[in-house]
């Protein structure tokens, strides 16, 4: 087989994988602070896509401005969702399952709400950057390069935010010991809302970058959510580094896999890996504890 084709697919895989990592890191953040999953995470992505379409294509705003406004909006959506749904379930009996069912409900609601508002026709967003780069016989559109850059920047920013900022540290403190956080003056309720908001931002960033490649529709979040769930489990729930490595790894595997399997079998491979990993190593590849 031609080496350049394989190389091309690896690079494409890294790019798609960086988006998986972006999605997965949002889920991972919520797991880290609240020990639960958000089955409506794909809907943040979907709403992000629609907002971008409306602002960029319909309202004609430039992509940067449209993206910034979308991010702001979806942040608010995330905060509201935590306050209206998750907030009422926390510290109640059944917390291990109730948010799973509730966010499932939210997901159904948001999908059908956007179906009602924007219809089922697939919508397209043009590339933010035209043209493509060629090197060593590999062709790469500037847009895809931009995806990688944005994903790296966003993930790095998230890391720095968690590591060094006042709120980021408070967020980590909250995830480790809520009562101790409270007596140090951290309003943990607010932290949980912010966590959801940030998680929503990460999904929106993914949506902004990926929507020009795929299309915008009410169901676009569903398959990516499943992928992201697989990624955080493979990487080890709560491990940000694990989510990133597993995300990029899965992207590359799929990219190269396309050369050997028909593309419609791609997801079967992804979920089979998920099941095998959970079977052999329930804590994931980078997780430390079994939850």
């Amino acid at each position: 087989m031609d080496v350049t084709i394989v190389l091309q697919q690896i690079i494409n895989g890294v790019i798609v994988g960086s988006i998986y990592a972006l999605m997965a890191s949002g889920l991972s953040l919520i797991w880290g602070t609240m020990k639960t999953l958000n089955f409506a995470h794909g809907e943040f992505y979907m709403l992000g896509g629609f907002f971008m379409f409306i602002l960029n294509v319909q309202a004609g705003l430039n992509p940067i401005l449209a993206g910034a406004i979308s991010i702001l909006f979806i942040f608010v959506v995330g905060v509201i969702m935590q306050r209206l749904v998750i907030h009422y379930l926390m510290d109640k009996p059944g917390w291990d399952v109730s948010p799973l069912i509730a966010t499932f409900g939210v997901s159904i609601f948001l999908q059908n709400l956007s179906l009602k508002l924007w219809g089922e026709r697939f919508k397209n967003i043009p590339y933010y950057l035209g043209g493509e780069a060629s090197f060593f016989g590999i062709n790469l559109s500037y847009h895809r390069i931009l995806i990688l850059i944005i994903a790296v920047v966003v993930i790095f920013t998230l890391w720095a935010f968690l590591k060094y900022s006042r709120f980021g540290m408070a967020l980590r403190a909250t995830s480790q010991d809520r009562d101790a956080a409270t007596i140090n003056g951290i309003n943990t309720k607010k932290m949980f809302m912010i966590t959801f908001g940030i998680s929503a931002i990460l999904a929106t960033a993914a949506a902004i970058m990926l929507s020009p490649i795929y299309s915008v529709n009410p169901w676009m979040g569903e398959s990516l959510l499943l992928k992201a769930l697989a990624v955080i489990v493979i990487g080890g729930l709560g491990s940000l580094v694990g989510a990133i490595i597993a995300g990029v790894g899965l992207g590359v595997l799929e990219g190269v896999g396309i050369l050997f399997f028909p593309s419609e079998w791609q997801n079967v491979i992804a979920f089979s890996i998920l099941i095998i990993v959970l079977w052999i190593r329930p804590s994931g590849l980078f997780g430390t504890k079994e939850w």
């Binding site: 980590r172 403190a173 480790q176 010991d177 009562d179 101790a180 007596i183």
Partner: peptide, 12 residues
């Protein structure tokens, strides 16, 4: 408040 059992953020 210095709580019982110290309650540090153990991974920080």
């Amino acid at each position: 408040h210095v709580p019982e059992g110290r309650r540090l953020f153990s991974q920080m």
